[in-house]
Design a protein around this nucleic acid. Structure first.
Length: 461
RNA sequence: GGCGCGGUGGCAGAGUGGUUAUGCAGCGGAUUGCAAAUCCGUGUACACCGGUUCGACUCCGGUCCGUGCCUCCA
């Protein structure tokens, strides 16, 4: 059987991935807080873990992929205040948009998409457990995790508690026993969302939800926990602290999740993406002008752990690459893909080596070259299988390339008649007129190709 | 200040102790009335300085530069 190697942030090395239960590989990735449109950084996380889940599915009989939606958070409350909309309206709206946008990027829906607000009792129970075990304390309506009670704290991000305090830029709240302590539960004002709890009406801190939801839906320990690199500290560090301490695994950081996978950051045209610079690229907006597959390919064109600079030219290049691949598929239209064919070894080797998508893509391009030349059912099938694993080439090639005829298009008749006229002109060697017509069609976004069997055209976009 | 990551040909981007990454662009050619599309050919690039080695872009040390995180953040 094939094995996958993954870089484990917890051990800081590439490891051979061995499932805890080979009959059910369990994967959790931290999803978005739904207060706005998903940006290209959110999309990278979704695409990376979708691809990882897909790879694992080709190897193991069952994969359970959970990715949460955070629907209670101070940022959401702020958005509600600013827009005057109710909180649930906002979270529902943006959760739906998130799912639609990620689907457009070729991401399969996670098997489980838990929401924080439907897991409040589990979070309260977990918090109580931590208090019972003296890892947390109630203070001034808050419940805080007491970091000094967990000497192993900091193991994921590799920083000692003292270092954090030295580097802290934030004022220490008075209700904290220790500057590093973090909130498990906090009180809500009357106009804020809240739930009854043993500590009064309040709402959960950010980190506890993932601990509670991962435990409930996947069981502990589970195989892989993922998310953006920036979540390593404090979010993932705190998840580990909560979950390990609640279950008496104070010395074993892997008692929550065995393998930690973090994707790198996305910059935009060389700059950090931020609201103040105004360069936040929203998946939703990009999908207006580019197909989801082009966005997806761009996100997979760098290794997932490397930083990715999002540029217009990278996006154009992805589009071009897809055009060429679809062109190959179009040439193979009449070839029936052979029913069962293995995914090519070098392609799989690349993906299995810590999800090396750029290398896999190179293998796929080599494969497309072979397929275009040999035109065999086997090669076609291999190409389709490999592309499927990357989540590309899922569409009809004619449609992608603009060869399909939309009869409702008001230009269609005009294009046809111009093409006719050009054919006439060419036959009578009136090339000046023929070129004039081509220029006219080019202006209409129509590209002509003269083939041995006659001229064909497609819409260029 | 602390912890981390990275500097590869015009651009994007893998990888390796000694052998072509790949793609885009460019250049040359085939094809075409001219194009388009396609095909063929074409680039000894690995920040700098030392060290280890028969041999380093790849390992070690240092320098410079860029960048991320340090309790809002995918």
């Amino acid at each position: 059987m094939r094995t996958v190697k993954l870089y484990n942030s917890l051990t800081r090395q590439k490891e051979i991935f061995t499932p805890i239960d080979p009959d059910n590989v369990r994967l959790y990735a931290c999803g978005p807080t739904v207060y706005s449109y998903a940006h290209i950084g959110n999309a990278r996380m979704a695409v990376v873990f979708d691809t990882l889940a897909g790879l694992l599915r080709t190897i193991y009989p069952k994969v359970t992929y959970a990715s949460n939606i955070t629907d209670v958070d101070d940022k959401i409350m702020t958005a509600a205040k600013e827009t005057g909309q109710p909180i649930d309206a906002i979270t529902k709206k943006y959760a739906d948009i998130y799912n639609a946008d990620m689907a457009a990027l070729g991401c399969a829906a996670p098997d489980i998409q838990p929401r924080a607000t439907t897991h409040i009792p589990q979070m309260i129970a977990l918090t109580q457990k931590l208090i019972e075990k003296n890892h947390a304390y109630a203070s001034d309506g808050h419940v805080l995790f007491h970091v000094p009670s967990f000497p192993a704290y900091g193991g994921l991000s590799g920083r000692s508690r003292d270092e954090q305090i030295a580097g802290a830029r934030v004022e220490v709240a008075s209700y904290k026993k220790d500057p590093a302590d973090f909130v498990l539960w906090k009180p809500s004002k009357d106009d804020e969302p809240g739930w009854d709890s043993p500590w009064g009406r309040g709402r959960p801190g950010w980190h506890i939800e993932c601990s509670a939801m991962a435990e409930q839906h996947l069981g502990l320990p589970f195989d892989i926990h993922g998310g953006g690199a920036d979540l390593k500290f404090p979010h993932h560090e705190n998840e580990i602290a909560q979950s390990c301490c609640a279950h008496g695994h104070e010395t074993d950081l892997a008692a929550f999740a065995k393998t930690w996978v973090h994707n790198g950051f996305v910059t935009v045209e060389g700059e950090k993406m931020s609201k103040s610079i105004g360069n936040v690229m929203l998946a939703h907006d990009l999908l207006e002008s580019y197909p989801g597959e082009a966005l997806r390919l761009t996100l997979l064109s760098a290794h997932y752990r490397q930083p990715l600079d999002w540029t217009q030219s990278a996006l154009e290049q992805s589009k071009k690459t897809l055009d060429r691949l679809y062109g190959v598929l179009r040439d193979l239209k009449d070839i029936e893909a052979s029913p069962n064919e293995e995914i090519p070894t070098d392609f799989m080797d690349a993906l299995c080596d810590d999800l090396n998508t750029p290398k896999a893509l190179a293998a796929l391009l080599a494969l497309s070259k072979t397929a275009a030349k040999d035109k065999t059912p086997q090669h076609k099938k291999q190409l389709l299988c490999a592309a499927n694993l990357l989540g590309i080439l899922q569409q009809n090639s004619d449609e992608w390339l603009g060869y399909t005829r939309d009869t409702s298009d008001p230009d269609a008749a005009k294009i046809e008649s111009l093409l006719q006229e050009r054919n006439e002109a060419r036959r009578s060697k009136n090339f000046a007129r023929a070129d004039e017509i081509r220029a006219q069609l080019t202006a209409m976004n129509v590209t002509i190709e003269d083939t041995p069997t006659g001229a064909i055209w497609h819409k260029s976009n």
